[in-house]
């Protein structure tokens, strides 16, 4: 489905070369939930932007469904940490934005939006504006908006980074539920080990700057997983040994 071959990226500002990604190769199969786990801020968002087509890699190649990625396309949906909702559109307006850009007629758009708003459990909030929603609800709208454009690949860039802990646990369960009902290939970025363990079929561990792939962990715990089961805690302990800290 998605494959990155020897992708690297160096930023150049006023003469100073700053290598952010170094020789990253990874594969993501159809409808697989892959979590990219990495410390701090270095490189993860850049990798997402490259996969989404908003940014270009300086070396290597990224292909989705066999086609080379060279710009943003509706087949790839993105969910952002700061939700990036359009503040002047209602929930319905936000979710239906993709189809509107594609030129779908109004009635059809409304139905599509309604379906995904119900999927993320926000029925009844169609007419409210983002400013009036809580952090968790805004993330749900972000997910619904990405789904509504029916992408084959969903890129989620630390979507719960700003949520308080309790909402974060609830949202992890929400994503688990939505994903099981409407399977898509998901690339989920996070710096939280518990979140990665709870959601991932496979975890790809990235190193600190410049980011490379350190190792991979196949997670075959039965779903939905339990945060305080002994196997969960053992796995967490094992993985956290490999994670470099950022300072």
């Amino acid at each position: 489905m998605i494959s990155c071959k020897h992708v690297s990226k160096t930023f150049e500002n006023n003469g100073q070369k700053n290598e952010v990604l170094k020789d990253i190769s990874l594969e993501v199969a159809e409808n697989e939930f892959v979590v990219i786990l990495g410390p701090g801020q270095c490189g993860k968002t850049t990798l997402v932007n490259i996969m989404a087509g908003l940014d270009h890699e300086t070396a290597g190649s990224v292909t989705v469904n066999g086609k080379q990625v060279d710009g943003p396309a509706p087949e790839r949906g993105v969910v952002y940490q700061k939700t990036a909702l359009f503040p002047w559109l209602t929930v319905e307006g936000n979710v239906g934005f993709g189809p509107k850009m594609a030129g779908l007629p109004k009635k059809e758009r409304k139905e599509k939006a309604k379906h995904y708003i119900d999927l993320v459990g926000l029925s009844g909030f169609e007419k409210s504006y983002p400013i009036k929603l809580s952090g968790g609800m805004r993330q749900r709208v972000g997910i619904a908006r990405a789904y509504c454009n029916n992408p084959s690949v969903l890129l989620m860039d630390e979507p719960f980074g700003h949520l308080d802990a309790q909402t974060r646990y609830l949202m992890q369960e929400e994503v688990e539920r939505i994903w099981s009902q409407d399977k898509r290939t998901v690339v989920f970025i996070t710096n939280n080990i518990e979140e990665a363990l709870y959601l991932a079929d496979r975890i790809i561990l990235l190193s600190n700057c410049p980011t490379t792939v350190r190792n991979e962990f196949k997670i075959d715990l039965p779903r939905p997983r339990d945060y305080i089961s002994p196997e969960f805690l053992k796995l967490r302990e094992e993985i956290s040994k490999h994670v470099e800290t950022t300072e």
Binding site: A73, P74, R76, A84, F86, W88, F97, K100, M101, N149
Partner: peptide
């Protein structure tokens, strides 16, 4: 205009003209 919003709109398939109309104008109101 918040560039993440422009990025989000481009990801949803908005063309430059649509970005001006549906993102830049409302954001600057």
């Amino acid at each position: 205009v918040d560039q993440t919003l422009v990025g989000a709109a481009r990801m949803l398939g908005a063309k430059p003209a649509q970005i001006f109309l549906y993102i830049t104008l409302p954001a600057s109101v």
